[in-house]
Computed example of a mutant assay.
Amino acid sequence: MRIAEMKTGTTIIDGKAFAAEMRGRVAEQVSRLKTEHGITPGLAVVLVGEDPASQVYVRSKGKQTAEAGMASFEHKLDADTTEAALLDLLGRLNADPSVHGILVQLPLPRHLDSARIINAIDPAKDVDGFHISNAGLLATGQKAMVPCTPLGCLMLLKAHLGNLSGLQAVVIGRSNIVGKPMAQLLLGDSCTVTIAHSRTRDLEDIVRRADIVVAAVGRPGMVQGSWIRPGATVIDVGINRVEGQDGKSRLVGDVDFPGAAETAGAITPVPGGVGPMTIACLLANTLTATCRANGLDEPEGLTA
């Protein structure tokens, strides 16, 4: 099941279950590609340095890529790798027909220009959706590779609400990775969208008017439960590690979950909400890129 209901009547949107179902659909279509066309989607992940969180994330991506029946290519480079060497690797991956998707794990070491690196990826293989060409295509309502986290948020919203047309939505956060593309996706589904951030005046009043609240600002508990309009749908993208009263760390979102759950119609938990959707959408984007590269119909229900 994708959703569960609290005693208050609030629906808890189960991103973990939704992502598992989605990965299953991706695996089915990958199997069909292999059987009918002899094509195996390939995802290349590039990790520079030894950031612990990035290493865990890359391992998880590799595992789930293999489980979906795709080819996984991992490139682990030293932290002092030069920009020229990294660009050379990306050039080779761009030219490799067995690689349909390329992802450079962020953040990169400080001596590397992240924008230059991202924009060196072939836009057709940019399964993270960060290339300036894909950002421009999305902003102008054209077919693009869509960033994975916002795509996952949109899928969760559509699964719960159905038609989003005419709804008031507020996106808290203005990053190129989540906030801006999230707003573009909601506009594409005919929502009335407000982009807010940590310096927005009267943020509480803006949130109170929203049917949809997407919090992606990176501040634990910034969005108070009392701000949430009764019946609103809350998508909490934040993943913040905080220390509990027992001295042990735990993950919390950008939204005060207990307070928001008192009034929201539906809400994603942290963990187990948006997080699992990111890798599921990465696999979906890789499948989409493979179909586009081979002139095949795009998979249904796995794109924006």
Rank of each mutant, 00 (worst) to 15 (best):
M182W: 12
K143A: 12
M1T: 11
D205S: 15
L164N: 04
A260T: 03
P271H: 03
A293P: 06
A19W: 00
A159F: 10
I195E: 11
T82E: 13
A210V: 07
W227N: 06
G24W: 13
N176Q: 14
V48R: 01
N294A: 05
Q245C: 10
A280Y: 13
D189E: 15
L138Q: 03
P220H: 01
G188Q: 07
L43V: 05
P271Q: 05
A53T: 14
R110C: 04
M22P: 07
A304M: 03
L187T: 12
R201C: 06
T290K: 03
V104Q: 08
T65A: 14
S98R: 14
I206N: 02
L33V: 08
P269W: 07
D211P: 13
D236Y: 01
G101L: 03
K63I: 12
I206E: 09
G301V: 10
M155F: 11
G238W: 07
V30A: 06
I13F: 03
G152W: 09
E204F: 09
L106N: 09
G101A: 12
D211H: 12
F130I: 14
V270P: 04
G247N: 13
G231V: 02
R25P: 06
A120T: 10
L137P: 00
L283A: 11
A71K: 05
G273L: 04
R59M: 00
V58L: 12
R174Y: 04
G272I: 03
T82I: 05
T263P: 10
G152R: 06
A44P: 09
L47W: 02
G15L: 07
A95M: 11
G15N: 01
T81E: 05
L251F: 15
A284W: 01
D113A: 14
A159I: 08
P41A: 03
S190V: 09
G272Y: 02
L283E: 00
S175F: 09
M222N: 02
P271M: 04
A71S: 14
G275A: 15
R59E: 14
R250M: 15
R174F: 03
G166L: 09
H100P: 02
L185S: 01
G162L: 05
Q168A: 13
V99R: 06
